[in-house]
Amino acid sequence: MAYNITSQCISCNLCLSVCPTGAVKVVDGQHWIDPELCTNCIGSVYSVPQCKAGCPTCDGCVKQPGDYWEGWFAKYNHVLAKLTNKQDYWERWFNCYSQKFSEQLQKRQQQVLEA
Rank of each mutant, 00 (worst) to 15 (best):
residue 47 S to D: 12
residue 114 E to F: 03
residue 78 H to F: 08
residue 27 V to Y: 13
residue 86 K to G: 00
residue 42 I to V: 15
residue 51 C to D: 08
residue 14 L to M: 12
residue 93 W to G: 00
residue 37 L to W: 08
residue 21 T to L: 03
residue 26 V to L: 11
residue 39 T to V: 13
residue 46 Y to G: 08
residue 26 V to W: 00
residue 71 G to V: 05
residue 65 P to N: 05
residue 3 Y to E: 00
residue 10 I to F: 00
residue 58 C to W: 04
residue 112 V to Q: 11
residue 17 S to P: 05
residue 30 Q to V: 15
residue 110 Q to C: 07
residue 92 R to P: 01
residue 3 Y to T: 07
residue 91 E to H: 11
residue 77 N to D: 05
residue 28 D to W: 04
residue 111 Q to W: 09
residue 55 C to A: 06
residue 60 G to L: 00
residue 5 I to E: 00
residue 86 K to T: 13
residue 74 A to G: 09
residue 87 Q to D: 01
residue 97 Y to R: 02
residue 112 V to M: 07
residue 10 I to S: 01
residue 111 Q to H: 12
residue 44 S to V: 03
residue 52 K to N: 09
residue 100 K to Y: 05
residue 28 D to S: 14
residue 9 C to Q: 05
residue 99 Q to N: 09
residue 2 A to V: 08
residue 88 D to M: 00
residue 62 V to P: 01
residue 46 Y to Q: 06
residue 19 C to Q: 05
residue 39 T to D: 10
residue 53 A to V: 13
residue 91 E to F: 10
residue 48 V to A: 13
residue 60 G to Q: 02
residue 99 Q to A: 12
residue 15 C to Q: 02
residue 22 G to C: 10
residue 108 R to H: 13
residue 79 V to E: 04
residue 102 S to V: 02
residue 90 W to S: 04
residue 107 K to N: 11
residue 72 W to V: 12
residue 7 S to L: 02
residue 18 V to C: 09
residue 38 C to V: 12
residue 38 C to W: 02
residue 68 Y to I: 14
residue 24 V to D: 01
residue 26 V to S: 11
residue 107 K to R: 13
residue 9 C to P: 12
residue 29 G to C: 09
residue 45 V to I: 15
residue 9 C to I: 07
residue 85 N to M: 06
residue 69 W to F: 14
residue 56 P to Y: 07
residue 52 K to V: 15
residue 41 C to V: 09
residue 82 K to N: 10
residue 88 D to V: 01
residue 33 I to N: 06
residue 2 A to K: 08
residue 97 Y to I: 02
residue 11 S to C: 05
residue 109 Q to Y: 04
residue 47 S to Y: 13
residue 103 E to M: 06
residue 34 D to F: 11
residue 105 L to R: 10
residue 114 E to I: 07
residue 82 K to Y: 01
residue 110 Q to M: 10
residue 81 A to L: 00
residue 91 E to C: 01
residue 110 Q to N: 13
residue 57 T to K: 07
residue 105 L to W: 05
residue 8 Q to G: 01
residue 27 V to P: 02
residue 49 P to R: 04
residue 106 Q to V: 15
residue 44 S to Q: 04
